Amino acid sequence: MTASTTQRENRVIRQPIVGSRRFSNYWWAIVVSLGATGFFLAGLSSYTQVNLLPIGDATQLIFIPQGVAMGFYGVAGLLLALYLWLVILLDVGGGYNEFNKESGRVQIFRWGFPGKNRRIEFSCRLQDVQSIRVDIKEGLNPKRALYLRVKDRREIPLTRVGQPISLSELEDQGAELARFLGVPLEGL
């Protein structure tokens, strides 16, 4: 949601939100896939007594208990890798925020998990927007997020989940949005 990713015209701001298609998710999906495949092949090699690994000799493992444990960890890891790849493929959490003065509407859209609630949409009138709230929590698990506060006291998250954005970027985004909507910026 920086100036390069925010499409700003005179009357419309559209902010794309990166969901699960982040570099870190690709990295972990690849690492887990490779590691789990290695564990699974090691367990299978100890059972069949045929070396299926390109590095090392897994036929030296005794099937019970080492081969069974390696096979179990391999299957569990492959299931986790499958989950990670599906989340990336479905782009869970991805979407956009659109603030449109021409239509007088705010539209928040995100992709969710498959099912009846796959499309997560929120829409309201610009007049119903009460403020933009900044939420900053430092510490071991820092949280930095922007929220759209609506008059019925609901708070709709505007920033992506995961890596916290820098403080200056968060302040700039909040101030730009509050200025565009003509509402106060809270929480600073």
Results as ranks from 00 to 15, higher is better:
residue 17 I to T: 07
residue 51 N to P: 05
residue 123 S to N: 11
residue 137 K to C: 03
residue 47 Y to V: 02
residue 73 Y to P: 04
residue 52 L to H: 15
residue 113 F to C: 01
residue 16 P to M: 08
residue 23 F to L: 14
residue 183 V to L: 03
residue 25 N to Y: 10
residue 29 A to L: 10
residue 167 L to R: 12
residue 175 A to C: 08
residue 28 W to A: 10
residue 91 D to M: 02
residue 62 I to W: 13
residue 136 I to H: 08
residue 43 G to V: 01
residue 8 R to E: 15
residue 142 P to S: 09
residue 46 S to M: 09
residue 65 P to E: 08
residue 36 A to I: 00
residue 146 L to T: 04
residue 48 T to W: 13
residue 24 S to R: 14
residue 82 L to M: 11
residue 116 K to W: 00
residue 167 L to W: 00
residue 131 S to W: 00
residue 53 L to N: 15
residue 90 L to A: 13
residue 119 R to C: 02
residue 64 I to H: 11
residue 13 I to K: 07
residue 20 S to I: 10
residue 20 S to M: 10
residue 179 R to L: 10
residue 120 I to L: 11
residue 95 G to C: 06
residue 61 L to T: 00
residue 117 N to W: 00
residue 164 P to K: 12
residue 42 A to P: 02
residue 64 I to K: 14
residue 52 L to E: 09
residue 151 K to T: 09
residue 118 R to I: 00
residue 166 S to C: 03
residue 24 S to C: 12
residue 85 W to I: 12
residue 159 T to G: 07
residue 16 P to R: 11
residue 6 T to E: 11
residue 135 D to E: 11
residue 31 V to H: 10
residue 58 A to P: 07
residue 140 L to P: 03
residue 55 I to S: 10
residue 79 L to W: 05
residue 41 L to P: 03
residue 3 A to Y: 13
residue 47 Y to F: 15
residue 16 P to F: 02
residue 35 G to T: 11
residue 113 F to R: 09
residue 35 G to H: 12
residue 125 R to I: 09
residue 3 A to I: 14
residue 43 G to H: 12
residue 132 I to F: 01
residue 134 V to C: 06
residue 154 R to H: 02
residue 178 A to M: 04
residue 66 Q to N: 14
residue 137 K to P: 01
residue 100 N to S: 11
residue 138 E to Y: 06
residue 59 T to H: 02
residue 45 S to H: 09
residue 41 L to E: 08
residue 55 I to E: 14
residue 132 I to N: 01
residue 49 Q to H: 15
residue 179 R to M: 09
residue 186 E to V: 09
residue 94 G to N: 04
residue 81 A to N: 07
residue 28 W to P: 04
residue 71 G to F: 07
residue 72 F to T: 06
residue 121 E to C: 06
residue 84 L to Q: 11
residue 46 S to R: 09
residue 101 K to H: 12
residue 71 G to P: 00
residue 159 T to P: 06
residue 150 V to E: 08
residue 6 T to R: 14
residue 68 V to P: 06
residue 131 S to H: 01
residue 53 L to M: 14
residue 87 V to I: 11
residue 93 G to S: 06
residue 11 R to E: 13
residue 27 W to Q: 12
